[in-house]
């Protein structure tokens, strides 16, 4: 499989704070990649650099063959983002919000309209498509966020806490959607979460970040092996070992 994302020596300093510390890895096409770590470990900074939204202090990243530093606009055409606590235009309906984003992504009008309707159905907001977002629950907003991240039909999807605030049934739907996007459409998905059970269920590979650096990377069995975890230890304990807590 071809690499869709190549992260090369990516580093970010905020004054004396080393937010991301010389990170190197690649992510394959169609892979579901979990980016884990405590708050402040450097996950969001890495994501923002991947989108070309903040300049790295050192290093670069290549997304679908495009350098995010040299051609940030071009690279963003290939990436969809669901940020943590994503907000929407409250005075607009789900459909209107998505059409606006489709226009920003230069999706032709007719295609945008069809795609938006399909996405609304896909994330389970079909009975709420004409309702203003101000009346949406947190879970409904999160579903809309996922639809928004897909509106430009990206090659890479970055989901920051995608199941946050969603009920168990909804969470299951989202997981199913993530799997479908990855397996059927070959979409590469990077997602961050604090729900380790979810990582175990979904991810092909995982990177664990600690103080801006990669503490461990690989499949879950590989990670288990790297820290010599016992057979009985679950992924939560493995994660805590990487964080130096256990």
């Amino acid at each position: 499989m071809a690499s869709v994302i190549e992260i090369k020596n990516l580093t970010k300093k905020y004054g004396d704070l080393l937010a991301v510390d010389h990170v190197n890895y690649t992510i394959e096409e169609g892979e579901i990649f979990g980016l884990l770590g405590h708050n402040g470990a450097g996950k969001t900074t890495t994501i923002l650099m991947l989108l070309g939204l903040i300049p790295p202090t050192e290093g670069t990243a290549i997304v679908n063959g495009v350098d995010v530093i040299k051609e940030p606009l071009q690279s963003r055409r290939h990436v969809g983002l669901l940020p943590e606590n994503a907000g929407f235009y409250e005075n607009l309906t789900a459909r209107q919000n998505l059409l606006f984003y489709a226009e920003l992504a230069d999706v032709p009008d007719k295609e945008a309209s069809e795609r938006v309707e399909k996405l609304i159905d896909q994330v389970g907001l079909d009975d709420k498509r004409g309702v203003k977002v101000s009346a949406y629950s947190r879970g409904m907003r999160q579903r809309l966020g996922i639809a928004q991240s897909l509106v430009r039909d990206p090659k890479v999807l970055i989901l920051d806490e995608p199941t946050q605030g969603i009920d168990p049934e909804g969470t299951q739907d989202i997981r199913k959607l993530i799997r479908t996007l990855s397996k059927d459409r070959g979409m590469t998905i990077i997602f961050t979460t604090h729900v380790l059970y979810e990582v175990n269920k979904l991810c092909d590979r995982v990177a664990i970040m600690k103080n801006g650096a990669i503490a461990g990377i690989g499949t879950i069995p590989e990670l288990r092996k790297q820290v010599n975890a016992d057979e009985g230890e679950d992924f939560e304990q493995i994660f805590l070992r990487y964080q130096g807590v256990v």
Partner: peptide, 15 residues
């Protein structure tokens, strides 16, 4: 920024 839509906007292929 407060609503949380600025990051989403900036993630689109626009200057």
């Amino acid at each position: 920024r407060q609503r949380g839509s600025l990051k989403t906007l900036l993630s689109y292929p626009i200057y």
